[in-house]
C-alpha cells in the first residue's frame, strides 16, 4: 500500500457519509409492508430443486461422487442462472464437518479487533509475506502443506469477520506475485451459528464451469472446478479446488496467467500437487 493509498483510507475514515434522517422512516415503512413469507419459501424450494437437477445433469457420470466431494455435504453447479436480469454461472458447496475453533483459542489481537469493530469485516495485510505471519497474528495454525510452502508468496492477508459477540470467521489468503496461485483458508469459530455453512462462487455467463472430484494421494477428496472463458471473453482460464482439511475450508485457485502458469496442463498439475501436499 503506497502513501496515497493510505491517505485515501484515512480521509475516508475522517469523512463518513451520513445516512439522511429520512432513511430510518423509509426502512420502517418497507419493513411494515413486507408480505407473508409462506409463498416465498415454496418458490425457493422449487428453485433449489431445479439447481440440484441441473447439477446432476452437468456432472453426469460423477454426480454421486461429486455430491460428497471435498468433504462437503452437497455440491451444486449451474451454468446460465439468471439473477436480476443478468446471467451467471456458479457453483456452491454446502455443509460438511467444519471445525469451530473456540474463541478463547484465538489471539488477543484478533479478539480485540472484533471487540473494537463488531459486526464488520476487518482486514490486516502482511505484505511480502506468506500467511505464516497471519497465523502467528491470529493464534490459529493451519494444516501443513509442503507444496504451498514451496511457492514464493507475494503477500497475504487475514480478514476477521465478527458479530456483536466476537469473531465468527477468519479468512486467511495468500498469493504468488502474479496471482497465478491463490490460496484461501476459512476458519470458523464457535460463535458461528450451528446451521450448515454454504458458499457460492460465481462467474459471468461467458465463462463455462465444469466440475469433477479429485482424490489426492493423501486420501483427501477435493471438488475441482474448471473455469474456461469463451473465446474472446475477458478473464483467464483457471482451475479451482474447494475442500475441507481438518474442518477448515480451502479454496485454491491456479490461473493460466501466461507468466507463472503457462498452460492449462501446468495449472492442473500445480493444483494437484497442492492437493497432494496436505499433511493429513
Amino acid at each position: 500500500m503506497d502513501d496515497f493509498e493510505k491517505k485515501l483510507f484515512e480521509m475516508a475514515k475522517k469523512e463518513p457519509v451520513d445516512a439522511p434522517d429520512g432513511l430510518r422512516a423509509r426502512v420502517s415503512r418497507a419493513l411494515e409492508d413486507l408480505p407473508e413469507r409462506g409463498g416465498t419459501r415454496v418458490g425457493r424450494t422449487a428453485r433449489t430443486a431445479l439447481c440440484a437437477l441441473a447439477a446432476a445433469a452437468v456432472l453426469a457420470g460423477t454426480a454421486l461422487a461429486v455430491f460428497s466431494a471435498g468433504g462437503f455435504r452437497s455440491v451444486e453447479l449451474r451454468n446460465g442462472e439468471e439473477m436480476d436480469g443478468e446471467e451467471y454461472n456458479w457453483y456452491g458447496v454446502e455443509g460438511g464437518e467444519y471445525r469451530r475453533v473456540p474463541v478463547e483459542e484465538l489471539s488477543e489481537k484478533v479478539r480485540k479487533i472484533a471487540e473494537n469493530d463488531p459486526v464488520s469485516d476487518t482486514t490486516r495485510y502482511f505484505e511480502d509475506s506468506d500467511w505464516s505471519a497471519a497465523q502467528e497474528f491470529s493464534g490459529v495454525t493451519l494444516p501443513g502443506n509442503d507444496a504451498i510452502d514451496a511457492l514464493e508468496m507475494g503477500g497475504s492477508r487475514l480478514t476477521v469477520s465478527s458479530n456483536v459477540y466476537g469473531p465468527t470467521h477468519l479468512a486467511f489468503w495468500q498469493s504468488t506475485d502474479g496471482l497465478g496461485v491463490t490460496v484461501q483458508a476459512d476458519v470458523y469459530t464457535d460463535l458461528m451459528g450451528e446451521g450448515a455453512i454454504r458458499v457460492n462462487r460465481g462467474v459471468s455467463s461467458d465463462t463455462e464451469l465444469t466440475a469433477e472430484e479429485y482424490i489426492a494421494e493423501n486420501g483427501l477428496s477435493a471438488l475441482v472446478v474448471h473455469a474456461q472463458p469463451d473465446e474472446g471473453a475477458e478473464g483467464t482460464e483457471r482451475y479451482m479446488a474447494d475442500l475441507l482439511v481438518d474442518g477448515i475450508r480451502y479454496h485454491i485457485k491456479v490461473s493460466v496467467n501466461g507468466t507463472e502458469i503457462g498452460t492449462s496442463d501446468e495449472a492442473l498439475d500445480t493444483l494437484h500437487a497442492i492437493l497432494n501436499g496436505f499433511d493429513v
Binding site: 408480505p35 416465498t40 419459501r41 465478527s162 465468527t168 470467521h169 458461528m192 446451521g195 450448515a196 454454504r198
Partner: peptide, 12 residues
C-alpha cells in the same frame, strides 16, 4: 432481501 432470505446461508 425478504423474498430471498433463504439464500443467505451464512449470517456473517
Amino acid at each position: 432481501a425478504w423474498q430471498r432470505l433463504g439464500s443467505l446461508r451464512e449470517p456473517s
